[in-house]
Design a protein around this nucleic acid. Structure first.
Length: 331
DNA sequence: AAATCGACCAACCGCGAGAGC
DNA sequence: AGCTCTCGCGGTTGGTCGATT
């Protein structure tokens, strides 16, 4: 059975808003607020519009703090970073850009930034292809890990066009289902998940994608965690691989041979920047070493609730934080 | 000058989540 | 527990406008 319409579409005005309607809506909301009920608002405001339409008009256009157009390079990078990390979750992305709306960001991405990013992606693919052919005797991924990418390209560096896990929150389920898209999340634990969460200075959630092989590479001995070269070895499994730091997907050298644009992650984590040594893979490495476990957990909870839930289940000594508030703290 | 095309963006649509009853 | 209602979200559509042919 279909859903009942929120209003009678035949009796309400649709299409572009007139300046008079804008003024009616603006003055009503400014004087009375939304009253928590958009459905009733148009009637009270004297508008012959659907409540949803009013809400959209207010949020996307009439709100006093709205910015239109004129995206800065920094905003480009934020959008690219987050799209790369969390996919098309426009409301979250927009919440990190003051004055921008999800609709605006979405439109901007679809019409302009995506093309820019695609061009950059293509350029980077060519760069790495060239590097691999001449630099390492065709050892593929490993070689790419050694090759230092043109890090922090000056303008609009969009690391990847593959929003790894818009679907990330269901990634574990996907893993157990198997198939081509099979993947699994795991943590690089020292000995057990609980031990890792309690002891390890860095716990990097990893997602192992693909190739029909849903198994994770073998866990490293504890001492290897501190060694960037060992981790590079760890990641040299045949399957394409994505890594997640704190639940934020990082398209690393292992999959598309692309560097993670880490411009935004420090901000999310509340740290000023990653020190050069804070990279697991070394040599311009791409996986930030997350020292702050609580920040990592926050990100996990927000972007990978299911993955985290499984981690908490495994790490029985660690009490999960309240998930609901975490996203708010991030968004 | 007219027709066509493509870019842009406001608005719509349908769905899921959550609150309230 | 189940139903209804509303909100918020992401995907899509359609109108407008400038550039090109």
């Amino acid at each position: 059975m279909g859903r009942a319409p929120c209003c009678d579409k035949t009796s309400v005005k649709r299409g572009p808003w007139s300046p008079e309607e804008d003024e009616l809506l603006r003055s009503y909301v400014q004087n009375h607020g939304t009253g928590g009920n958009w459905i009733a608002l148009p009637h009270k405001a004297g508008l012959n519009r659907c409540g949803k339409s009013c809400r959209l008009r207010w949020l996307n256009y009439l709100r006093p703090d709205i910015k239109h157009g004129g995206y800065t390079e920094q905003e480009d990078r934020v959008i690219c970073s987050l799209y790369n990390s969390i996919g098309s979750r426009w409301s979250i992305i927009a919440s990190k850009l003051p004055g921008r709306t999800d609709n605006d960001v979405k439109n901007y991405w679809n019409t302009k930034l995506k093309k820019k990013a695609l061009a950059m992606h293509h350029h980077q693919q060519e760069y790495y292809h060239h590097n691999n052919q001449h630099g390492s005797g065709g050892r593929g991924r490993r070689a790419a890990a050694v090759a230092t990418p043109p890090r922090a390209a000056p303008q609009s560096q969009c690391a990847s066009m593959h929003p790894s896990p818009a679907s990330a929150s269901s990634a574990i389920t996907t893993a157990s289902a198997g198939g081509d898209a099979a993947c699994s999340f795991g943590a690089i634990y020292s000995s057990s998940p609980a031990a890792a969460l309690q002891q390890a200075p860095a716990t990097v959630l990893a997602r192992y994608d693909g190739g029909g092989a849903a198994t994770a590479p073998p866990l490293p001995p504890p001492q290897q965690q501190a060694s960037s070269s060992s981790l590079a070895e760890l990641f040299s499994s045949p399957a394409p691989l994505l890594t997640h730091a704190g639940g934020v997907a990082i398209n690393s050298w292992a999959s598309g041979l692309l560097p993670f644009d880490d411009m935004f992650l420090p901000e999310l984590l509340g740290v000023s920047e990653f020190a050069p040594g804070d990279c697991l893979l070394g040599g311009g490495g791409f996986v930030p070493l997350l020292q702050d476990r609580s920040s990592l957990q926050e990100l996990s909870a927000c972007y990978f609730p299911n993955a985290q839930a499984e981690m908490w289940a495994a790490a029985e000594h660690v009490k999960p934080p309240p998930v609901a508030g975490l996203c708010h703290s991030l968004t």
